[in-house]
Design a binder for these strands. Structure first.
Lengths: 240, 240
DNA sequence: GAGCTCAGTTGACGATGTCAACTTGACGCT
DNA sequence: AGCGTCAAGTTGACATCGTCAACTGAGCTC
């Protein structure tokens, strides 16, 4: 049923990382070809690599470790897409917008990979082991944060770039994730333009949030209860 | 290891739905007690109900069907929490804010249930079968949409209530989902107040989006490419 | 050439979802 | 009262999954 690659020649000691690479591309292609994430079994990955199943354990401690490694690669792809989109223009606002668009499009076009990345159960692993994937993830966030910097200098956005980017990415992620996982939601016909609306909502909201942050946040930035900034907001917008 | 309920008396024909209820509460409590969603196995659920494993198949076509049924109940809980929060005040803006807060708090306090609800793989089931859970989901959204209505009448928000609510819920979901699934992200120490920021960003953004929608959207609401509304936005905010 | 090291294999185990075949017990009919 | 019926549950089994212990055999070093 599954075609196996002919038996591979054994790698010489010292270049043990070679098979690791092959396993990863096998897992990725397996995921890309099938429309179901259930195909990602150790046996299938091993068979496609032309190797016996337990051989995978020589390179990955766990199935979760393998999945995490795949995730890291997808994170990098996503990061590159976002970065390229940002750098495709000189207008900082256009750049942010295109970055958001690239993020959304990546998610909608690779729903399986995106769900693996973003919706996988967080493994209670030791953080030191999860270091590289953590970096790949935050790198993607940093691209967005860097892109907000010129908008801050232009006086449009205010505050910490990383925090602004985190708020925006949060909204974008919510849009993509919900569309992927809840297809029966009452989505508009044109999902991409709805995502654009959300991106613009985030941009406008971030700008407004910064401008009124001193008034609205001072006094109630502590935890637990949601305070009265919503009232401040409505008063400001309705002209008091 | 797992205590079994003493063998249950057989239900009479005609009230076959009785066991179904017991199975559902068993699954829910199982999920609530353990901190891991891997405990939700058919065998564990059956054992807790005091019934043999395949008996579950008399009431649920599939494991996925059982999970879907559990999801529907969690949806209802979430919907009630949001609704109660909204109705806990007369100020429509406070109501929206509290609704958002309830949504976020539910997710952060019940991460397993939330991930089951929102991040489960969408089963390519026939929609007619998924009808009830779909309704429970959209009911939750409708509560938020209804809550935006007075804000529209006050002239603060503009547009379709459901669409406004959908944009806001999208942002809230992104915040909760990302916090649950990506704990290693550079989150602020106080997660709840960050969620509040996102909620306010969504509120402000929705308001601004409505006010400038005629100017920014007209001409480029089609799909595919992200256009120049970001530029319009920056020009408006910087005073041209 | 002897011996060591380590990448990879074989065979097995427990757990899981699922199914076919059997058992049982409450109800309706005579 | 007795009996047949039929749905509700049980038993036993299967394929598949992740995982592990024990074995094999290249290729390097001395």
């Amino acid at each position: 049923m599954v075609l196996e690659t002919p038996r591979r020649r054994r790698t010489r000691p010292g270049e043990g990382g070679l098979l690791r690479e092959e396993i990863l591309v096998a897992a990725e292609s397996l995921l890309a070809e099938a429309g179901d994430e259930a195909v990602l079994t150790l046996r299938a990955v091993a068979a496609r690599t032309g190797v016996s199943t337990p051989a995978v354990y020589r390179h990955f401690a766990d199935k979760d470790a393998l999945v995490a490694a795949v995730c890291m690669r997808v994170w990098q792809e996503l990061g590159h897409a976002v970065r390229a989109a940002i750098e495709s223009t000189d207008d900082p606002f256009q750049g942010l917008r295109r970055g958001a668009g690239a993020f959304v499009r990546f998610g909608l076009e690779h729903p399986l990979q995106y769900r693996l990345l973003m919706m996988g159960a967080p493994r209670p692993d030791a953080p030191p082991d999860a270091r590289p994937e953590q970096e790949a993830a935050t790198a993607c966030l940093r691209y967005l944060a860097e892109a907000t910097r010129p908008c801050i200098e232009a006086g449009v956005l205010h505050g910490d770039p990383e925090r602004i980017a985190l708020r925006a990415m949060t909204a974008l992620h919510g849009c993509v994730a919900l569309m992927i996982a809840q297809p029966y939601f009452p989505w508009p016909q044109d999902q991409e333009s709805f995502c654009d609306e959300v991106a613009r909502m985030a941009g406008l909201g971030n700008a407004a949030l910064g401008e009124m942050s001193a008034a609205a946040l001072t006094g109630t930035p502590t935890a637990g209860q949601f305070a009265t900034a919503f009232g401040d907001w409505s008063r400001q917008l309705t002209g008091r």
